[in-house]
Amino acid sequence: MQITLTVNGTEYTRDVEPRMLLVHFIRDELLLRGTHWGCDTSNCGTCTLWVDGEPVKSCTMLAVMADGRAIRTVEGLANGAELDPIQQGFIECHGLQCGFCTPGMMMTGRWLLDNNPNPSEGEIRECISGQICRCTGYKNIVSAIQWAAEHPATSEVTS
């Protein structure tokens, strides 16, 4: 079945089997490997990307269900060479060690800050409660999102 969607502002048309999961479409068809593929059970959240502006666990959505929609992945965060504050926050606060959960954490964190520019620590922790990190722990990740909240981008990045 032929689908057409935009990913980070670029339109793609591909022929896919209806059973193909969106995460595999993004990684294996479009070769955008920033979106990670983890637990396969919508628990770990590393496959989180945006569909029409809202974060979704892409291991639990079929690629055909994204037909006609706008996707934003972690590759769409930076504005050229300028990192999104959420990315800079993870650098500043050592928000990652192995980096496996990071794309999902950053996509969820960006969404949170877009809707709530000054979240409390509790709000941050609740928002990332569907994301699992197995190495740094959550403290530095929360700090990274707080850093991004305190250092908003000067120019708006759009997907």
Partner: peptide, 9 residues
């Protein structure tokens, strides 16, 4: 129920 990302779907 679940988490904020799952609740989006």
């Amino acid at each position: 129920i679940a988490d904020p990302i799952v609740r989006n779907r």
